[in-house]
């Protein structure tokens, strides 16, 4: 005669395998690898950043870029990122046509739908975005989709130097 209770409920003395029993802390070969994996993009310093609406004129955007000596403007509408306007956009779509198109909206020459990272992504994500997409400026978004900042080439090199020399 079988005892159903004995079969369905483990006895308290039975060994129950702990899923974290073999857990080992992450091992890193060097401090740079550890920093890239454990630091977030916010540790790359993502502010200050400049934003403009997509309806701004090209002339206004170019003047702004030159005035602040930055190479990237974030283009936002209603608090949402819609594009980037960078030195490269200026070179490729504006420089030779500037007098003719300077009154047109920025949306006609910006880079739309750029690659981005979230603010809690690992710093490595920003580097990979640059490597994969070729974009040198990586917008950083909060989880609600609003803009948290931008990762720039200078901020990345400063981060790499800080963690490769330590």
């Amino acid at each position: 005669m079988s005892d159903r209770t004995d079969r369905s409920v483990p006895a308290p003395e039975d060994d129950f395998p702990d899923p974290l029993e073999d857990y080992e802390p992450q091992h890193y070969d060097d401090p740079l690898e550890e920093a890239l994996d454990t630091r977030t993009v916010l540790d790359l310093q993502t502010v200050p950043c400049e934003t403009v609406p997509s309806t701004a004129t090209i002339e206004a955007a170019v003047a702004r870029l030159a005035a602040i000596e930055h190479s990237c403007l974030l283009v936002e509408d209603n608090g949402q990122l819609v594009g980037l306007f960078t030195d490269r956009d200026l070179l490729k779509r504006v420089a030779l046509e500037y007098p003719r198109i300077k009154d047109q909206p920025l949306s006609s020459v910006m880079t739309a739908d750029p690659v981005y990272v979230n603010e809690d992504d690992a710093a490595a994500a920003a580097l990979h975005v640059i490597a994969v997409s070729g974009h040198r400026h990586v917008p950083v978004l909060k989880l609600d989709g609003t803009i948290a900042g931008v990762v720039t080439p200078r901020r990345i090199t400063a981060f790499l130097i800080q963690h490769s020399k330590s």
């Binding site: 739309a112 739908d113 490595a124 994500a125 990979h128 640059i130 490597a131 994969v132 997409s133 040198r136």
Partner: peptide, 23 residues
């Protein structure tokens, strides 16, 4: 910049996901 990032990405031993606005 790009060459350096490609070098680091190649030798970085972990996987990273990239995503596009509107993608």
């Amino acid at each position: 910049q790009k060459g350096l990032m490609e070098f680091i990405a190649e030798h970085y031993p972990r996987q990273v996901m990239v995503q596009y606005v509107g993608g």
